[in-house]
Amino acid sequence: MAVKEGEGCPFCEIVQRDDEDAREVYRDDHVVAFFPTDPAVLGHTMVVPRKHVPDIWSLSEEKAAHLARATVRLAGAIREAVHPEGLNLIQSNGEAATQTVFHLHVHLVPRWGGDAMGPIWPEETDYSEDRKDHALRAVREACRSLSSDV
C-alpha cells in the first residue's frame, strides 16, 4: 500500500526522530540518511529531504542541490565503509515507477557481482524507430523552455 503525503509519512517520522527503530547514518540541515528496514543489500542507504517533498516534480532546484551534494558524499562514505564493486542510485516517482512512500528519497545501493539485487534493466526492448523519434522530438521540445544556466 502506498503512503501518501502528510500524516503517517514514515520518512517524516524518521526526520522528526519519532521512529526509534530507524538506523540513521547521517543528518544535516537539509537531509537525513538511514538504512531501510529491509535493505536490498548490506550498506543500502536512503537519503530524504528533511522537509516533506512528495516527488521530484515538487522539489526546488535549491533543495535538489542539497540532496545531490549529500548523495555524492554518502556514496563516498558507503564506498569507504563496505567496498562495493559498483553502486546504483535509484530515485522513483509515482506508483508506476514503484514509489511506495510519497516522500522523495534516493536509494544508494552498493553492488557486487551476483548480489541479491539482480539486473535492474530489461534485457531487451522492442520500440520502433518512429516511436523513439517521436519521444525524442517531444522531449527536445519540452527542453526548449529550460534555462541553460545549469
Rank of each mutant, 00 (worst) to 15 (best):
K4I: 09
E5Q: 11
E5D: 08
G6C: 05
E7H: 01
E7W: 01
G8D: 04
G8S: 04
C9L: 08
P10H: 05
P10K: 00
P10Q: 00
F11S: 06
C12R: 01
I14D: 06
I14S: 05
V15C: 06
R17I: 05
R17K: 14
D18G: 03
D19Q: 05
A22L: 02
R23Y: 02
R23F: 01
Y26E: 10
R27V: 14
D28P: 13
D28R: 10
H30Q: 13
H30W: 09
H30Y: 14
H30S: 09
V31F: 04
F34V: 09
F34I: 08
F35N: 13
F35W: 11
F35C: 14
P36L: 04
T37D: 06
P39V: 01
A40T: 07
V41T: 14
V41I: 13
L42I: 09
L42D: 12
G43T: 07
R50H: 08
R50D: 13
R50E: 08
K51A: 12
H52N: 13
H52E: 13
V53I: 15
V53L: 11
D55V: 09
I56W: 12
I56C: 10
I56N: 05
W57C: 15
S58V: 03
S60T: 15
E61F: 02
E61H: 13
E62G: 12
K63G: 10
H66S: 11
L67E: 15
A68H: 12
A68V: 11
R69K: 14
A70H: 10
T71A: 12
R73C: 02
A75Q: 12
G76L: 11
G76C: 12
A77K: 10
E80G: 06
E80W: 01
A81N: 03
V82E: 11
V82F: 02
E85I: 00
E85D: 04
G86C: 03
L89F: 15
Q91R: 10
Q91H: 10
N93L: 05
N93P: 06
E95Q: 00
A96L: 04
A96N: 04
A97Y: 05
T98H: 14
Q99C: 06
V101D: 10
F102G: 02
L104D: 12
L104E: 13
L104S: 13
L104Q: 03
H105P: 04
H105K: 11
H107F: 02
H107S: 09
H107E: 10
L108I: 11
V109E: 09
V109N: 05
V109S: 07
G114C: 07
D115H: 00
M117L: 14
M117F: 03
G118C: 08
G118K: 03
G118T: 10
G118M: 02
P119W: 03
P119N: 08
I120R: 10
I120D: 12
E123M: 10
E124Y: 01
E124L: 01
E124W: 02
T125K: 06
D126Y: 00
S128C: 00
D130G: 00
D130Q: 00
R131F: 00
D133Y: 01
H134V: 03
A135P: 02
L136C: 11
V139N: 03
E141S: 10
A142T: 07
C143M: 13
R144C: 06
R144V: 07
S145A: 15
L146Y: 15
S147I: 11
S148P: 05
D149N: 12
D149I: 07
D149E: 13
D149H: 15
